[in-house]
Amino acid sequence: MASQQHHHHVAPVKYYVATFATLLALTILTVAVAQFDFGAMNIVIAMGVAVCKASLVLMFFMGLLWDKKINAVFFLTGLLFLGLFIGFCVLDIGYRGDTDPVESLQYGVKVPVRHAEAEH
């Protein structure tokens, strides 16, 4: 039973420590960047950094890099179908009223929010 045990790839500790350090650095980076307003670019940068951090965790902590490829294929199909879900929902909600502008607007949202100025 112990014959073919060598196959499990045991990564040296420095991989984990390096990943950990980079993750902390990226967290600090994303917080720092968030202090300035880049307008529409805000979400793009935030998502970019988050994707970097996520891929680090995936490859090293979860070991996708040294693992059987089928696990990575499973993970990517999951992401692909999530992308489809977002894409088609945006296709509808983003393009509402494309043939008749009356359909696009939402009106009359009645919510008991006490407005700031009315309050103080």
């Binding site: 008749d100 009356v102 359909e103 607007l105 939402q106 009106y107 009359g108 949202v109």
Partner: peptide, 10 residues
């Protein structure tokens, strides 16, 4: 066509 609250459809 469906009628949706708080929105117009035509």
């Amino acid at each position: 066509r469906d009628l949706v609250p708080n929105r117009y459809t035509r």
